[in-house]
Design a protein around this nucleic acid. Structure first.
Lengths: 360, 360
DNA sequence: CTGAAAGCGCTTACAG
DNA sequence: CTGAAAGCGCTTACAG
């Protein structure tokens, strides 16, 4: 069965290609009866216009490129679901570029993306260099970032509100009576981690607690590092030891949990732990992890919405960079309370005197 | 900067479009010097041929469609990575169709895929109906299944060896001295679960142990169900209680772990637990989960390889269904021993008599 | 080894 | 409201 072309349909319908094309494109100036007839023929023969021919004639593919980091992260899947939810009813499809770690962004970007393959670009930021994207955007290509790691850049983007999230996490701990709250940081070169840390600090101060520098530890999103740092935290003398820890990611929280178990500490009886992200397994592990949920699905959907808007604008011939400031959406996070956080332990009566610190 | 076309390059190089096109397509019958010159011009002006025009003229897009279930599963990400590893050096790109739960496969398939948008289809099987795919394949469209759930069908596919995997899992438990080994099943309508169960049964029998029907429980890949079923298992009188459980997925294992904790059982001292899949968090939770690793990355790569081969064959005008039997690859799994499995507990001396079962 | 011409399957002014 | 024609940017026989 050779593929049908518009010419075949035209012949079958006893009309010209033009007319068929007009109904295909929903032109208002075609007789309703004619339209119905053509539609019927199309349906009966299961005709689908050639994608390539349409793209060439119209000068625009209905494809959006999505660049994702080559990591098997939960968030990618959720973001993608959000994007798909929107694109699937606009007739756009997604072409997926996976940025494998050992491959440069740069070449991919100007090779594939200049080939007018995609009408727009959705980029899930990793730590990749963003300059080629900025350039592309300046040249008129619609681009939006889904900014999970939060490098700051002059491009439209959607992030989640990391600062508010941290405020909520620490607030939750404070509500439970904790005062010695540790923070195990992610990669502090990322904007998101800076924001989370700022939230931690501000929440503490707002509660009248002076943050203890000894209680903040670098974790770098590296399980091994986190383990070691947490061990140090848990080996602190009882009165200095934190009763709760705020981890910059769920994965980090997992490592903290393991360190706690190694130290013989029960969660949440001896120490509370809260994460950030709400990855899939967070609710399934033991104990189920309290965390700050990032709205990945919604972030994906919003990003797609922004992008589709920009594409439409571009199609209508609007100049690039029309609006001065690129849109920057920040989506609200939410606190998910599960079993890894609990009331501060009733402090044991002091035994003996507190160990004297050097008296001088 | 308007996009350059092949005509511009031809003018710039002082040659005809034909010649430029020939070098673009690596034709051998073009003068080496000319070729170098054209290439230089192309590079200097950063020219990239229009994707749509090429596709139309050649009659084939260099796009493969990848259909994935709308689930945020670890495996999808890994499979995709494997596919990308292969496609990125063949010049093919991936167009991603996410089968959202509330949307039918059927329409997607014949709408988009007949539009000659993709040269081939890679389908990560969920529980979706496969008939439209079989039809498509019969009509000459290259299709391959990455069969993670394992419905059996008459299409080329790559799976992992679930039977061997189960054998390894139970073998590991047996080696540790366990004899009362429970099995918490997934969805038994799936081929993969049937295979895993068969492996469980056979491993036991090979060791001279008669499987106890009371120790196999339906879990249906539903955490709540698994929890309840596991509780029943753990509430069994001590002598009947399993000392180890083989779960049909890691996620299932998580729920078993939680049930064990609820029952006051320590893992692995009181009960060993092994999963299946090796999802990302399996190594991070507490205790780290012993499991059977499915080679998702390799499965993706193999599937892509199979598909690309089929596409090449189709381009060379081979008739569909040339070879009688569709290729069916089964990839080996591997045992990953972590901390959730350990030696069988030394059986406590019996206290009192065993509870008499109805004597009749 | 290189070029002129037709064609891939659509869309879009332009006539009528 | 409908049709004939040109054009989108390539490729591919066919001449030379």
């Amino acid at each position: 069965m050779a593929k049908l072309t518009i010419r075949d349909i035209a012949a079958l319908a006893g009309l010209s290609k033009s007319t068929v094309s007009l109904v295909l494109n929903n032109s208002p100036r075609v007789d309703p009866a004619t339209r119905r007839h053509v539609l019927a023929v199309i349906r009966r023969h299961n005709y689908v216009p050639s994608f390539a021919a349409t793209a060439l004639a119209k000068g625009s593919t209905r494809l959006i490129g999505m660049i994702v980091p080559g990591l098997s992260w939960h968030m990618i899947a959720s973001i993608n679901l959000g994007v798909a939810a929107l694109t699937e009813r606009t007739g756009f499809d997604i072409i997926l570029y996976t940025a494998t770690n050992d491959r440069d962004y740069g070449p991919v970007i100007d090779r594939i993306l200049t080939s007018s393959m995609s009408s727009g670009l959705l980029v899930v930021t990793d730590k990749q260099p963003l300059d080629p994207l900025v350039q592309l955007h300046r040249d008129g290509m619609p681009v939006v970032l889904v900014n999970t790691l939060g490098t700051q850049v002059d491009l439209p983007s959607v992030t989640s509100d990391n600062y508010e999230g941290a405020l909520a996490a620490v607030g939750h701990l404070l509500d439970l009576g904790h005062e010695r709250i540790a923070c195990v940081q992610g990669m502090m070169e990322y904007r998101c981690c800076q924001d989370r840390y700022r939230g931690y600090l501000d929440a503490l101060r707002a509660a009248g607690i002076q943050p203890d520098p000894e209680l903040t530890k670098p974790g770098e999103f590296n399980p091994e590092t986190v383990r070691v740092q947490s061990r140090d935290l848990f080996e602190l003398p009882k009165r200095q030891r934190p009763t709760a820890v705020f981890a910059h990611s769920d994965s980090t929280a997992y490592a903290v949990l393991k360190a706690a178990a190694d130290a013989g500490l029960r969660v949440p009886q001896d120490v509370s732990v809260i994460g950030f992200d709400d990855i899939e397994s967070a609710s399934q592990i033991n104990p189920p992890l309290s965390t700050i949920r990032q709205p990945f699905f919604d972030m994906g959907r919003q990003a797609a919405d922004l992008l589709l808007g920009a594409i439409r604008a571009a199609d209508d011939g609007e100049p690039a960079q029309e609006t001065g400031e690129p849109a920057r959406l920040s989506m609200p996070t939410s606190l998910v309370v599960r079993a890894s956080t609990g009331p501060v332990p009733v402090s044991n009566p002091r035994r003996g005197r507190p160990r004297a610190t050097a008296p001088a």
